[in-house]
Design a binder for these strands. Structure first.
Length: 594
RNA sequence: GGGGGUGUAGCUCAGUUGGUUAGAGCACGUGCCUGUCACGCACGGGGCCGAGGGUUCGAGUCCCUUCACUCCCGCCA
């Protein structure tokens, strides 16, 4: 028998009544009655109440042990009387009568309590992450994460995918996020980059003939953090398949996700065949390419209304003449809402840096009229047309935004969330998935006015590849897709372009010469020239999936050792300075701070 | 890089129009208590009120600067 324990703190029940056992764990909580002491012992598996009274000579010493001391308890399992059974814990029918105790790990005074449901400042939690991770909620989240990853692994293997590792030290690529760089000692002045994703490698694996690949892959991007975005590093379920079309990828993911979300959450999945929305529809109706479909609010375009003679809203009409657009958001049956509700939304919009949201409520007495600050500008006929375009009815309120397309999309997209939140329109007990499809291949860079890739430059364009019309690149769509759940972007993916000649043409449009492409993407473009299979894939974010399953709003709640917003590890003190010798070896001189 | 929020005991927080010695709960220490499971009761130690400057007879409170954390924008193919 092991010298520390015969059972874990979650094991014991009435079957063990009368047996001599040993448990090891942390003192979770003490209840000291002076001559009788209850002591809850905790380990990864559960909680067991241990009890001792003053007749035992170690009683006095045990009383004084601080919470979170690690001890070994030797004692007898006894049945609790009916009145003292604790139904909240698995071991609640018994308790352990303490005979002997050994201190295995002493503790200093705790900088933060472990036994408490209280929320604590992030700073202290991250500095003492090992204490924080003992706490119930986050401990369970991390266990959930482990189980989710195991489940994904076994499902992927069942689906015929092979798991491979790809290099962590690789080359910097010109597209995408900022790279983390690693100086090379053997190649002075040169740098490795940590992979933003194993993008090129997974395509190379397809060219190598392995047919189906997956990996729980670490990805590194040196960009600023958000609540749902860890600074520095995160994990993707990276997968790639040969001889597939978009539908095949969707099929695999839908199967996997439905199984996964059913297994690890009690929430309902709204649509087991995931809704499909084109990128342009998503931007129009939801103002974002990651719409939360639990939210019933929709956006409609009303630009044409402001070209009518019988609409006198001069500010908007003038803006429309100069090329601006007008779109609206409709809230159902909000005629009884107080003025403060509408003004609150308007003020919020102004805080977002916009000129605000004009609004009116549709009413019907003899005829249809609009009530509200800007209601008087609209004729009955124009209101009927607005109702027709926006599917609004009397009693509904129309919120209007006018401006440049990107600004209107963004503001109304955010307003959709804000208003749904205020009106409590979101069913928190649902998972609502959608595919966003038909992304444009290119977009216009606002600053340089140059054409650039809107997503992955290796995506396959849609259309007849033999006679592809490249004269209007901004209208070219790609086999590029995103999967979104409850407004959280889980993944991007694409059918890849495996035809080198086509790739050169597409890169040329984005301003890369053939030589550029050969240099920057030499590994891949070379490989594609030696018999590459058509292939495609996707890479769902593991952290975000676990975040949804654990019902957390912050990714650090499902990450064991996260960094803070400034990309520092407060526990390990990373990043840190290094010695002059280390720098010298790497041929690096540091610039002095001014 | 920009905007918002927060910063008071080891931890979570209160602190009024600027006004005596800055409070509470948990934790810690001492004592009492034999059936608790957020045990209870009494007493106690513990504070550069994030830092610096200013206004004032007087600043935790008002003003300026700055730092830290956090949320958001930019950024994240």
């Amino acid at each position: 028998m092991n010298k520390y324990r015969t059972h874990t703190c979650g094991d014991l029940n009435l079957k063990h009544k009368g047996s001599e056992i040993a448990l090891s764990g942390w003192i979770n909580k003490k209840r000291d009655h002076g001559n009788l002491l209850f002591l809850d012992l905790r380990d990864n598996y559960g909680l067991t109440q241990c009890v001792i009274d003053k007749s035992n000579s170690i009683f006095k010493n045990l009383e004084k042990l601080p919470l979170e001391t690690v001890i070994k308890v030797v004692g007898t399992v006894v049945e609790r009387t009916k009145e003292t059974i604790n139904k909240n814990i698995n071991t609640g029918e018994i308790e352990v009568l303490i005979n002997k105790v050994e201190i295995l790990g002493a503790t200093k005074e705790l900088p933060m309590p472990v036994f408490s449901d209280q929320e604590y400042a992030e700073e202290i939690r991250l500095k003492y992450r090992f204490l924080d991770l003992r706490r119930k909620k986050i401990h369970q989240n991390i266990i959930l994460r482990s189980k989710v990853i195991s489940f994904i692994r076994s499902e992927m293997q069942n689906l015929g995918f092979l798991e491979f590792q790809t290099p962590i030290l690789t080359s910097s690529s010109p597209e995408g996020a900022r790279d983390f760089l690693v100086p090379s000692r053997l190649n002075p002045g040169k740098f490795y980059a940590l992979p933003q994703a194993p993008q090129q490698f997974k395509q190379l694996i397809m060219v190598s003939g392995f047919d189906k690949y997956f990996q729980i892959a670490p990805c590194f991007r040196d960009e600023d953090a958000r609540a749902d975005r860890s600074p520095g590093e995160f994990y993707q379920l990276d997968l790639e398949m040969s001889f597939v079309e978009q539908e095949d990828v969707f099929n695999i993911i839908e199967k996997l996700f439905v199984k996964l979300f059913r297994k690890f959450s009690n929430k309902k999945i709204l649509n087991e065949i995931f809704t499909r929305i084109t990128y342009s529809d998503a931007m129009l109706k939801y103002g974002t390419d990651k719409p939360d479909l639990r939210n019933p609010l929709q956006i409609s375009d009303l630009t044409e209304i402001f070209k009518r003679e019988d609409v006198k809203f001069e500010i908007f009409k003038k803006l429309v003449k100069s090329g601006c657009i007008v779109r609206c958001l409709v809230t159902k049956n909000t005629k009884e809402k107080p003025r403060s509700f509408f003004d609150g939304i308007d003020n919020w919009a102004k805080e977002q840096g916009s000129s605000g949201l004009a609004y009116f409520t549709l009413e019907k007495n003899d005829k249809i009229s609009a009530k509200g600050p800007v209601g008087k500008f609209f004729s009955e006929e124009s209101l009927k047309e607005i109702m027709n375009l926006s599917k609004a009815e009397t009693g509904d309120t129309i919120f209007l935004s006018c401006g440049k397309k990107v600004e209107v999309e963004k503001l109304l997209g955010q307003a959709r969330d804000k208003i749904a939140d205020e009106l409590k329109l979101i069913d928190e007990n649902l998972f609502s998935f959608c595919w966003v499809v038909d992304y444009p291949m290119y977009e216009l860079d606002e600053i340089s006015k140059k054409i650039k890739f809107s997503h992955n430059p290796f995506s396959m364009p849609q259309g007849d590849l033999k006679n592809l019309d490249l004269s209007d690149p901004l209208n070219l769509k790609a086999y590029q897709y995103d999967i979104v759940c409850n407004g959280v972007e889980l993944s991007s993916g694409a059918i890849r372009n495996h035809i080198p000649e086509l790739m050169y043409k597409l890169f040329e449009i984005a301003g890369y010469s053939k030589t550029d492409v050969q240099q920057k993407f030499s590994g891949m473009i070379n490989a594609l020239s030696y018999g590459a299979p058509p292939h495609g894939g996707i890479a769902p974010g593991i952290d975000r999936i676990v975040m949804l399953l654990a019902d957390e709003k912050n990714i650090r709640e499902v990450t064991m050792f996260p960094m803070n917003q400034n990309a520092q590890d407060l526990m390990m003190n990373a990043p840190s300075s290094v010695s002059d010798e280390q720098l010298k070896e790497l041929n690096i001189n540091l610039k002095k701070k001014n």
